[in-house]
Structure formats: C-alpha cells, structure tokens
C-alpha cells in the first residue's frame, strides 16, 4: 500500500491549533494498514487509515459490514497490531510493544463494551466487573469495593451479587459498562453496544455512555453500523473499503465541536 489514498482528513496535527491545549491524543492513527494472509492470498482489511481521537472525545466509527470497521476496532482495542503505519494508544506505539505489554496497555487504557456483553455466566456482577483489576494485581477487597462503586455508577447497586443469567439484557450490558469503567481507562471502546438490546434498553445504555463521557471525560469510541446510534455521537468517522471515507471532525475543523448531530 504505497499509494496514498484520497484522504479527506488532514494530516495529524493540523487540527491541533483548534483544540484546547490541555487536550491530548488518546488514539493516534497514521496511515494504518492491516492485511491478513490466507495461504497465497492477502486480504487488505485496512488500507491506510489516519485519524486522531482526543481525550474525552465522543466518536462513532460507522461503516457497513466488511468495511474494515471490526479490524479497526481490534486495532484500537490493542488486540492486534497494524501491518504498517503507526498506531499510538495512550501515547504507546503498538508495534513496539510485546504481547505482555499490549495486554497491560489494554488493561490500563481500554475499557471494552461488546455487543454480546461477554460476561462470565457463573460469576457475580461484582466478580465480573472486578476482572480487569484482577489482572492489574489489585487486592481482593479493594477490587470488590471498586467493582461495587462502578456498578453503582451505572445504577446497578442493587444487583451486586446477581449472576448474568439472573439479569435482563439491559442490566447485563450495564454490568459490562461497569466492567469497562472500573479500571478508569482513557478510552471506552463500545462495539455495537445496543445491538443485542431492545430500543428502550439500548437508549438507556447510550444515555449511560454519554453521561460517562460528559462527567468523567473518558473518550468513547462507538463502533456501529447503525446510523441512528452513530448520529448521537458528536463526531462520526465513516469507514468504507478499508479507508476513512468521511470524518465529521475534519469538516467542522474541531474535534470538540458539540452538537454535530
């Protein structure tokens, strides 16, 4: 991928003067590619993606299935490394990190919210939420205390010892949000968070994400194919065929521009 594709987004750093000086880049992608080899054939899922997500920003990554959206999410979640280009998460270049360092980066900087909730079915809400702290080496009592706090923050203070099977889908997704939040990450990465929920629960989950973004300043990256969900974000990055097709931040000239929807 030598040829630079037509890129609607200016090079990173260009929008910088428009931002408050206190803002730092939570995610910085420069010409990121990712290709997969299956025997002789190579499939290029991402063909050179560049964009920046600032601290505390609320961004939706939108695109149809097969657009490279999932690949991008895995990269932003530090679950994978780019084939070429530079991807910095929390200031760390993914290509320079070992598997163990990558795991630690995920643990500290990223909170995941998955479409299918991904809760451990036999563990209580508290134990599920405390999981990221377990891998951070936090002691048991403190872990449970922080997990309980996190559950209270998403309105589940009354469900601490319930197991996922005893909760509704909306509640389960709120447990997952509490889990994403418990480690106080810089970025909350939500992959189709409302995909398995009815509209009422979906709206509730979206409200919580927005509230967390506003009150705690955690950067939210929402990956979805649903334009309605994406429309609630201040900024949309539209991905198609492995490239960024449209980035509203570039159009508005400011990533922090509110009310873009």
């Amino acid at each position: 991928m030598d040829e630079q594709p037509v890129d609607e987004q200016p090079a990173p750093g260009v929008p910088a003067p428009a931002r408050p000086a206190s803002r730092r880049a939570a995610i910085e992608a420069v010409d990121v590619t990712r290709s997969y080899s299956f025997g002789d054939t190579t499939v290029q899922a991402l063909r050179g993606v560049s964009f920046t997500v600032d601290d505390g920003e609320y961004t939706a990554i939108v695109g149809p299935s097969g657009s490279g959206k999932s690949t991008l999410m895995h990269l932003l979640g530090c679950l994978d490394r780019p084939t070429s280009g530079t991807l910095r998460v929390g200031g760390r270049d993914l290509r320079e990190l070992s598997d163990a360092e990558l795991a630690e980066l995920r643990n500290r900087e990223i909170g995941f919210v998955f479409q299918a909730f991904q809760l451990l079915p036999r563990s209580t809400a508290v134990d599920n939420v405390a999981l990221p702290l377990l891998y951070r080496g936090v002691k048991g009592a403190e872990r449970r205390e922080r997990a309980a706090q996190s559950l209270r923050a998403v309105g589940l203070g009354h469900r601490l010892t319930h197991r996922p099977t005893q909760m509704s889908g909306g509640e389960q997704q709120r447990v997952a949000i509490a889990r994403a939040l418990v480690g106080e990450p810089r970025i909350l990465l939500a992959d189709e968070p409302t995909g398995n929920l009815d509209s009422r629960n979906g709206a509730e989950v979206m409200r919580i994400l927005e509230q967390l973004n506003a009150e705690r300043g955690v950067a939210v990256v929402l990956v979805t194919h649903d334009d309605e969900v994406a429309g609630r974000a201040r900024r949309q990055v539209r991905v198609r065929d492995g490239l960024v097709e449209r980035d509203t931040a570039a159009e508005h000239g400011t990533a922090a521009g509110g009310g873009a929807a």
Binding site: G77, L79, D99, A100, A103, E104, R106, N107, R108, F112, Q118, L131, P132, Y135, R136, R179, G183
Partner: peptide, 8 residues
C-alpha cells in the same frame, strides 16, 4: 480475559 488485560 485477554481483552481485559490477561497476559498469555
């Protein structure tokens, strides 16, 4: 578990 920070 790996996504949440478990190492190999």
């Amino acid at each position: 578990r790996k996504a949440l920070g478990a190492r190999q």
